[in-house]
């Protein structure tokens, strides 16, 4: 599905955060990227999504080189991104938030209507509150809006950055269930960056561990049952 080869990227010249990261994510699988704070997990997602321009290396989406492609083009190619910090538009209605997910095909009214309806069936709670400002929703429901907005574009690959940061435990379980549903019911490929190692290992199929901008270990989740191995090996 997506393959990253020897990626070098950073925010400033001569200061790379990622110094040769390689990664492969299989179709309809959850691939999780773990590692301590500051090893470049979020940077990796931002680089894939075109927010950062890689200095070297390649990103291949189904064999096609997408290195440095801007976000609006990636959306058309079926890539989408759920950032770590809340990304709802707080003073727009839930429905307008969802609609904005369709920005790249805003002229296709029939498709927008269809995707909205799918979202309301997937998340009936959102239908009830579609006219409320998204900022008034609970943290968990805001995540629901973000996921729903992402699904407006029919993505094949979703990049998810710490989806449960700042959420209560019960809501976290809900969010992880949402992600597994996307994989199992809708066949989506997910790259999940997470600090909640236990939770991520529960739902992931394949694990990468980064250390200071480089790959450290990787393998199928079964090989990572021993948490200590992930953390300090």
């Amino acid at each position: 599905m997506i393959e990253i080869k020897d990626l070098h990227v950073g925010y400033y010249k001569d200061l790379d955060i990622l110094r040769g990261v390689s990664l492969k994510a299989e179709e309809a699988k959850i691939t999780t990227v773990l590692g301590a704070n500051g090893v470049g997990k979020s940077t990796l997602l931002k680089a894939i999504y075109g927010f950062l321009k890689p200095r070297a290396g390649q990103i291949l989406l189904q064999g096609q080189n997408i290195t440095g492609t801007p976000p609006h083009r990636l959306i058309e190619l079926g890539v989408s991104y759920i950032p770590q910090h809340s990304s709802v538009f707080p003073h727009l209605s839930v429905e307008n938030n969802l609609r904005l997910g369709a920005w790249t095909f805003r002229r296709d009214k029939a498709r927008i209507r269809r995707k909205l309806e799918e979202n309301y069936q997937r998340f009936p709670m959102l239908r009830d509150r579609r006219n409320d400002d998204a900022g008034l929703l609970s943290g968990g429901m805001q995540r629901m809006v973000e996921v729903g907005r992402t699904l407006m574009t029919d993505p094949k690959l979703i990049l998810v950055d710490e989806p449960t940061a700042g959420l209560a435990k019960m809501l976290s379980a809900e969010v992880y269930r949402m992600l597994t549903d996307l994989r199992d019911k809708e066949g989506l490929t997910i790259i999940l960056v997470d600090q909640e190692i236990r939770q991520a290992l529960k739902i992931a199929d394949y694990v990468y561990v980064l250390e200071l901008g480089r790959n450290r270990v990787d393998g199928p989740t079964e090989e990572f049952t021993d948490l200590k191995k992930v953390l300090w090996d």
């Binding site: 999504y49 927010f51 801007p70 976000p71 609006h72 959306i75 989408s80 991104y81 759920i82 950032p83 910090h85 990304s87 709802v88 538009f89 707080p90 003073h91 727009l92 307008n96 609609r99 904005l100 997910g101 920005w103 790249t104 805003r106 907005r149």
Partner: peptide
């Protein structure tokens, strides 16, 4: 209108606007 709602979106959360593909 789309353009108006996109303007509001940018004013409320610039990063999120970029995420949905608004330039």
């Amino acid at each position: 209108t789309w353009i108006g709602i996109a303007l509001q979106a940018v004013s409320q959360n610039k990063d999120a606007a970029a995420v949905v593909g608004i330039n």
